[in-house]
Design a binder for these strands. Structure first.
Length: 391
DNA sequence: ATGTAGCCTCGGGT
DNA sequence: AACCCGAGGCTAC
C-alpha cells in the first residue's frame, strides 16, 4: 500500500514489535503474524496465519481470500491511516505557535489503534518504568500466557494473552519471579476483574464509537466539551477504578486503546513541556497535582481540539528525541571502556545486558526496586557461586 | 527520565 | 471543642 500523504513514520508505544529480518518488523496480531517493510514509496506488509488444524475447519472459517482482505483492513485499522495527518498538523500549528515551531521535524506521527485489553495491561506495566523494561515484560506476558501463532526465523510469536489466561491464581507469583515487581498484583487483580466480573465487553464498550474495535461499525460520538466528550470522561473514570490505574495510565488507555483522541496523558515529560512552553508551574499549578493534571489536559484540548492527544504525542516525541540525543552523547565514552573488558566472556548478548545494568546504576543513585528484569537468569549463572554462601 | 496507592499532616469549615 | 473532609506531601512498591 502507498502512504496517504507523503512518507510516514511509524511511531508507537506499541512494545511488541520485533525486528524479524533486515529492515523488517513483525508482531503477532489478531491471530496472525504481521510483518512490515518500508521503502521510499510504499509500506509492504505480509501476514502468516497458523497452520489449519487437521480436523475439518468450522463452517464459518475464513477462506484464504477473505483472510487477505481482512489483513489489509486490519492494517488500515491498526495504523489508523484514515485521518488526514497533514491537515491536522496544519490545524494544530495554526492554533499554537509552539507546535508550529517544534512539529516540522516530526511529521507522520500516528496514534495506533491498539487492542483495548492489551493497552490496559501494557500501560499498567508502564508505571514508574522505562520502555526497554516494559517491552520485556509485555513480551514475557505473551510468551508465557499468550497463544503461539507461529515462528519467523526460529523465533516464536505469541499473541497477547486473554484476561482469562492472566486471571489464573498462579499468575501473580510467577510474574513477580519474572521481575514485574508490584505490577504483578495490579495485573492479576485487573485480569480477574475483567475475566470474572466486568468482561471484555465492558472494556470494548468504553471505546470511542467513532473508532470502535476492529470489525465494528463506527457511530458518532457527541460533542467536545472542555474535559473531553462524555464517553471519554466515562471511560477515564471507569478505568480509574482499577488497581494500578491512575489518571495518566487511564489516559494512555483511552488514547491508544479506546480511540479517544482528545485524551491527553500528562506524564513527567508532558509536565516539563507544559511548564517550559505553556506557562504552567507557577502559583496554583506549581506541582503536578490531580487538579493541575486536568488543568494541563484541558488547556491542550482547548488549544488543539478533538485530536489533542495526537498533537500531544507529536510534542512528546520531539521532546523525547531531544532527550535521547543528549543521553547518547553522554554514554558513548563509557561504551568504549566496557567493550575492552568484554573479551573474557563469550556471549555477546550477556555483555550488552551487563553494560546496561552498570550504566543504569551509575546514573541512578538509589531507589531502584529490588527487581532484576528478565535478564537475571542469565546473570545468575555467573554470580551464583559467590552469592550463595551468605544465604 | 518515571506512576499509583496508602498513609500522614495541616488547615478551613461546621 | 470535636469532628469532618479535601488538598497536598511523602514514600513504598
Amino acid at each position: 500500500m502507498s502512504p496517504p500523504n507523503g512518507q510516514f513514520t511509524l511511531c508507537t508505544l506499541e512494545l511488541r514489535w520485533r525486528k524479524s529480518a533486515e529492515d523488517e518488523w513483525s508482531m503477532a496480531l489478531h491471530g496472525r503474524i504481521l510483518s512490515f517493510r518500508q521503502d521510499a514509496t510504499h509500506l509492504h506488509y505480509r501476514a502468516v496465519f497458523p497452520p489449519v488444524l487437521p480436523t475439518p475447519p468450522p463452517a464459518n472459517a475464513p477462506s484464504a481470500a477473505t483472510e487477505e482482505e481482512d489483513t489489509l483492513a486490519l492494517v488500515r485499522h491498526y495504523l489508523n491511516l484514515e485521518p488526514n495527518l497533514a491537515q491536522l498538523y496544519e490545524l494544530w500549528a495554526s492554533a499554537d505557535p509552539n507546535f508550529k515551531k517544534r512539529a516540522p521535524k516530526f511529521t507522520g506521527i500516528r496514534i495506533l489503534r491498539q487492542d483495548p485489553w492489551e493497552a490496559l495491561i501494557g500501560f499498567i506495566c508502564s508505571s514508574n518504568n522505562n520502555i526497554a523494561r516494559i517491552s520485556g515484560m509485555v513480551h514475557n506476558l505473551c510468551k508465557h500466557y499468550g497463544p503461539l501463532i507461529g515462528h519467523i526465523d526460529g523465533e516464536a510469536y505469541h499473541d497477547f494473552p486473554t484476561p482469562e489466561a492472566l486471571a489464573d491464581p498462579k499468575v501473580e507469583a510467577h510474574l513477580k519471579e519474572l521481575g514485574f515487581g508490584y505490577r504483578a498484583k495490579y495485573i492479576a487483580k485487573t485480569a480477574r476483574i475483567v475475566a470474572e466480573e466486568k468482561g471484555l465487553k465492558w472494556l470494548e464498550e468504553l471505546c470511542n464509537p467513532e473508532s470502535p474495535v476492529f470489525g465494528k461499525e463506527p457511530k458518532p460520538a457527541g460533542e467536545l466539551l472542555e474535559g473531553g466528550r462524555e464517553g471519554y470522561r466515562t471511560a477515564h473514570e471507569e478505568l480509574l477504578a482499577l488497581h494500578g490505574v491512575g489518571p495518566k495510565v487511564a489516559d494512555c488507555v483511552c488514547l491508544m486503546g479506546l480511540g479517544w483522541s482528545e485524551s491527553v496523558p500528562v506524564d513527567t515529560h508532558v509536565w516539563q513541556i507544559a511548564q517550559r512552553d505553556y506557562k504552567f508551574g507557577k502559583g496554583k499549578h506549581s506541582s503536578l497535582t490531580a487538579a493541575t493534571y486536568t488543568a494541563v489536559a484541558n488547556r491542550f484540548r482547548q488549544l488543539w481540539g478533538k485530536e489533542a492527544g495526537w498533537a500531544h504525542s507529536v510534542l512528546f516525541t520531539a521532546d523525547l528525541k531531544a532527550f535521547s540525543e543528549r543521553v547518547v552523547a553522554k554514554t558513548e565514552v563509557k561504551e568504549e571502556k566496557v567493550t575492552i573488558k568484554q573479551e573474557e566472556s563469550d556471549i555477546v548478548e550477556e555483555i550488552k545486558v551487563d553494560r546496561t545494568v552498570k550504566t543504569k546504576k551509575r546514573i541512578k543513585t538509589e531507589e531502584d526496586e529490588p527487581e532484576h528484569e528478565v535478564i537475571q537468569t542469565k546473570r545468575e549463572t555467573r554470580a551464583r557461586s559467590k552469592r550463595q554462601r551468605s544465604g
